[in-house]
Amino acid sequence: MEMTKIVGQVTPEERDEIQKLFERKNGLTELAKILTADNEELYQKLVKDMGETGTKFQQWWDTKAKQYGWESHPKGNWEINFQTCEITLVVNEA
């Protein structure tokens, strides 16, 4: 069973930061599907970029969770709604 609860809200500027990182992460993931190692220059750039973007993405969540003190749960995850800037705690008890 899934339970959801709004546990916070970020500013539009903070939303823009994570949205950009999210979009970039998706872009890199889909680029990785078509890029092969023989395109060495672009491939190396991509590998490095995926690592850096992933780190920045995680850092955003860590920083904001600490800053706002969002409620958490061992079986839960947070979600952000880009339209409302709301942070929802989703707990999956199954």
């Binding site: 994570i18 969540w61 947070w78 952000i80 709604n81 880009f82 989703v90």
Partner: peptide, 8 residues
């Protein structure tokens, strides 16, 4: 905690 982006 893991994080997700709500697909909107």
């Amino acid at each position: 905690m893991s994080q997700k982006i709500k697909d909107n």
